[in-house]
Design a protein around this nucleic acid. Structure first.
Lengths: 203, 203
DNA sequence: CGTCGATATATCGAAGTGATATGATGGTCC
DNA sequence: GGACCATCATATCACTTCGATATATCGACG
């Protein structure tokens, strides 16, 4: 799902790898610091698949092709780095390609992957790129999963075989799932009132 | 942290791999189904390190060393499987070793690893194996982390740059963290009232 | 008798983590 | 002006975990 998150950020504007990490926290609500050991390979992967591309920095200034002077060699080195997408300060800025833009909504909506808490939050954070119908499907699928999970943890919370600490974990998990369900129900009612508004306006 | 979870289950009683997966959900509150692709390698790892060992099943019955008859070959096959810890139906039951028992509390309390939600819940579910002082340290460390996280997500919830969906994710994250903090504060006050009770009794 | 669903172990490639290395940039203190 | 340090930035490594897949056994059902 990291690929989707990165594409989601690039839909807005270009980013380099280091920046993506902070943006994941600040804009998409990802709680853990995603490691660079996953971000850089992910960018390379996306580039290989043609969904993103490295862009030349704002100040390319790599015009000099002077003869073999020391300054010339420096310039040609700079040109090399620039052509590879390496800008000032060694930054490598990525842009989403046209193909990336086209395929992103399908990746975001992909119904074959089952959501856990993290991927679901990520998808909601990017939900503006989904159609209203896909948003509702996303929310209702998660709602079903949470209802099943709620039954499980409630059973655990009442299980006298468990010691007080384990029961406390179960009971807190139940409250946490209940909070999630309230959130989802709020989002669902917003979706429905939006579509009503739309229906009324269409009349 | 899977190793700690498995050892925690084995502290109670022997288990085989397949069973461990269900027990993680039922007794330790792990929400995602941990894949067998991590459980079996984890058991092999723990066995290699001498923290767990395969046990012979309840009905070993591997006495026959008859000559090369067909029945004899079957029996020797059975013996082979039995000696490797493979019981009836191919089950491989594991037991925690004495060394495993000794090292488990230190692994569970390990202060060098930073908790996310999953590892923290896991540790609380196994908190009966910690001393009261280590329990309090665990809870207070997590409390600090959550306070920092709360400031972050509250900022995100108020950030007008974000669209309504992303803000909703941030706002729900804030509520969720608040719920976690209430839980931790409850657990902490329980720890303190327990130690008071102990202090009173010691008088 | 066959076969279907649950039990059970095992392995593979891909993806993520945490640690570590390396270097450029910008600010500050004397 | 220059020495120095924190931050910014990319990259790579070994190890862990995941998701999919293969395989075999057991019990129940018609």
């Amino acid at each position: 799902m990291l690929d989707v998150a990165i594409l989601g950020l690039l839909m807005d504007r270009d980013h380099h790898g280091y920046e993506i990490r902070s943006q994941l926290r600040e804009r998409l609500g990802v709680s853990a610091n995603v490691s660079f050991g996953s971000i850089y390979p992910a960018l390379a992967r996306l580039e290989r698949h043609g969904l993103v591309e490295a862009v030349a920095p704002a100040t390319p200034r790599a015009t000099a092709v002077s003869t073999g002077s020391l300054a010339g060699e420096r310039a040609s080195l700079r040109t090399l780095r620039t052509s590879a997408g390496l800008g000032r300060r060694g930054r490598k800025v990525y842009r989403i390609t046209e193909r990336g833009r086209q395929e992103f909504p399908a990746l975001l909506a992909d119904p074959t992957t089952v959501d856990d808490g993290r991927t679901f939050s990520l998808r909601v954070a990017l939900a503006r790129y989904l159609t209203p119908a896909l948003r509702v499907r996303l929310l209702e699928r998660r709602r079903q999963d949470l209802l099943e999970r709620l039954a499980e943890v409630r059973q655990g919370a009442d299980n006298p075989d468990l010691d007080p600490y384990a029961r406390s974990v179960m009971s807190h998990a139940a409250h946490s799932v209940e909070l999630d369900l309230e959130w989802i129900d709020d989002l669902l009612s917003l979706e429905r009132s939006d579509s009503e508004t739309f229906a009324r306006e269409a009349k």
